[in-house]
Amino acid sequence: MLELRLVQGSLLKKVIEAIKDLVTDANFDCSATGLSLQAMDSSHVALVALLLRSEGFEHYRCDRNISMGMNLNNMSKMLKCAGNDDIITIKGDDGGDTITFMFESPNQDKISDFEMKLMDIDSEHLGIPEAEYHAIVKMPSSEFSRICKDLSSIGDTVVISVTKEGVKFTTRGDIGTANIVCRQNKTIDKPDEATIIEMNEPVSLTFALRYLNSFTKATSLSESVTISLSSDLPVVIEYKIADMGYIRFYLAPKIED
């Protein structure tokens, strides 16, 4: 038996919209800790890891660990039928082949339920080791999104370099080159607008802008984004989900051929 009641249903709507273009099908793993997901894109270049902790739900019942395979496009179709202020409850039975989404309007005058078919997904689960990163940049998520969008009109790849001067985003294309440097800016009264750079050593890595632009679909989930870089690891782009958990995107770098 599974019953998860999420008062801020819009969070789940936003999470699915943020990942559905990157990942088609995924297993949602439910345990006493919370609802989690790990899935790679079809080319095995990017990975999304989601955690919604049990404490973030108003009611959380998960009698035994369960993995539910869902098509994210179908899930999105159903969740789009929920209002932004609706309370969403996810219900499932052990061993069942369907899951039910129940939507309640804030004043309880409209209650809908949508039953979705589950699917068997044979997914590869990667072991992601805890790592020390060479540099961690925290910046406004809207700023990061703007930079990725702007640079993708000029080039296909971005070089992200962190030095003590700041974080530099560089691209190159047929029409020319672009450099955007963001310096550390600790705005004390507005922490969400701050850019904070923690650097153990300088690092410079190249990434496909197409994937970074896809990750920025999570921008509305969090005011700030954290970019963790190491020269020998995929970058981690993390959006915290208020009081509940996170959505993390991992992207393997490009190397000179």
Binding site: A46, L126, P129, D232, P234, A252
Partner: peptide, 14 residues
Amino acid sequence: MYKQQKLSAFFGCK
């Protein structure tokens, strides 16, 4: 030119 690496080059299967 750049070559795209895969995640499996960094992370092992669980």
